[in-house]
C-alpha cells in the first residue's frame, strides 16, 4: 500500500467517525442545555436512539419527486462538506486549491435544498419557514462567503489544509468575530433561530417530513453543525485545536440559547444585513 492510499484510508475512517462525533455533538448540546435549565436531560447518546427510531418507522410513498429527493441530495452534500473538512484536518485528497469557496457554496446549497423540500411539501408552515430562510440567507450566507475569503485573502493561502498548517491562533480578529456571529444563524441558536421557531411555525422547514427522510435530514443538520464548528475552530485556532474549539463553540452557543428569546424575523434579518455590510467594508478595505 502506498503512502497516499494509506492517507486516503485514514481520511475515510475519520470522515465516518466524524458522523458519530456529529451525533454526540448534538447529544452534548442537548445535555448541556438541560443542565442550564436545571434538568437532568437525556443521555448524551440520545440522538442515536432518535435517529434509529426514525429509521424504523413505516415507509410510505410520497407523490412529489423533489420532496423525496431532498433528503438524499442533502445528505450527499453534507458528506461532501465532511470530506473537505476531514481532509483539511488529517489528509490532503480533498485539499485542493480554493476549496474553501466550494465549502461555502456547499453550505449554501444545503439550505437551498431544504427550501426546495419545504416548498415542495406545500405546508404553509414549511413555506413560511422557507421564506424566512431566504431572507436570512441574504444576510448570513453572503457574510459567510465573504468572511471565508477574508481569512484567505489576508493570509494569502489558497486552501483550508495549508491554512491550518501555516497559521494558528486568531490571525484575523475582525473576521473571526464575524464568523462567530454567522454561527448563530448556521447553528440555529435562539436569538436568530427564526427559521425553525417551534412556537410560530411548528417544525419549520421539515414540517412535512417524517420517518427515514426526517432521519436523513436530522443527520444532515448534525453534520452541518459539527462541520461549521470544525471549520470555525480551524480558522480561528488552528488544526490541533479544531475539535476542542468546536465543543467550545457549542458551549458558547448553548449559553446564548439559554439566555435569550427569539428575535422577530425582520429584526434578525436586519442584524445579519448589518453583519454583511461590516464584512463587505472589511473586504473593501483590503482591496
Amino acid at each position: 500500500m502506498s503512502c497516499s492510499e494509506e492517507k486516503n484510508m485514514i481520511e475515510f475512517i475519520v470522515t465516518f467517525l466524524l458522523v458519530f462525533v456529529a451525533l454526540l455533538f448534538a447529544g452534548f448540546h442537548r445535555k448541556l442545555l438541560a443542565r442550564l435549565h436545571n434538568r437532568t436531560g437525556p443521555p448524551v447518546i440520545q440522538p442515536f436512539y432518535d435517529t434509529l427510531k426514525l429509521f424504523s418507522k413505516k415507509k410510505e410513498n410520497y407523490e412529489n419527486p423533489i420532496f423525496n429527493a431532498v433528503p438524499y441530495v442533502s445528505i450527499i452534500a453534507s458528506f461532501a462538506i465532511l470530506f473537505i473538512v476531514s481532509s483539511a484536518l488529517v489528509g490532503e485528497s480533498f485539499d485542493f486549491d480554493y476549496n474553501f469557496i466550494v465549502l461555502g457554496y456547499l453550505f449554501i446549497l444545503l439550505d437551498t435544498f431544504y427550501i426546495f423540500g419545504a416548498v415542495a411539501s406545500r405546508s404553509p408552515f414549511a413555506i413560511h419557514s422557507g421564506v424566512r430562510e431566504l431572507l436570512l440567507m441574504l444576510g448570513y450566507k453572503t457574510t459567510f462567503l465573504m468572511v471565508m475569503s477574508l481569512f484567505f485573502a489576508k493570509t494569502g493561502v489558497v486552501s483550508l489544509g495549508t491554512y491550518s498548517i501555516e497559521f494558528g491562533f486568531l490571525q484575523v480578529p475582525f473576521a473571526s468575530i464575524l464568523l462567530v456571529l454567522v454561527g448563530f444563524a448556521v447553528m440555529k441558536v435562539t436569538p436568530f433561530d427564526v427559521v425553525n421557531a417551534e412556537t410560530e411555525i411548528s417544525a419549520g422547514l421539515f414540517a412535512e417530513y417524517y420517518g427515514d427522510h426526517l432521519a436523513l435530514l436530522k443527520i444532515t443538520e448534525f453534520i452541518k453543525d459539527l462541520s461549521f464548528g470544525l471549520v470555525a475552530g480551524l480558522l480561528l485556532f488552528g488544526k490541533i485545536w479544531a475539535l476542542p474549539a468546536a465543543f467550545g463553540f457549542v458551549i458558547f452557543y448553548t449559553l446564548m440559547e439559554a439566555t435569550s428569546p427569539r428575535y422577530c424575523t425582520f429584526k434578525a434579518v436586519k442584524v445579519f444585513i448589518i453583519v454583511a455590510i461590516l464584512a463587505f467594508i472589511d473586504l473593501f478595505l483590503l482591496v
Binding site: 443542565r35 442550564l36 436545571n38 434538568r39 437532568t40 436531560g41 449559553l255 439559554a258 439566555t259 435569550s260
Partner: peptide, 19 residues
C-alpha cells in the same frame, strides 16, 4: 443578569425527579 442566573442554576443539583 440572565447569564449569571443560568450558570448558578447549572451548578445546582438538577430538579428532575427520576420517578
Amino acid at each position: 443578569g440572565m447569564t449569571i442566573t443560568v450558570i448558578k442554576n447549572m451548578l445546582k443539583k438538577p430538579a428532575t425527579i427520576k420517578y
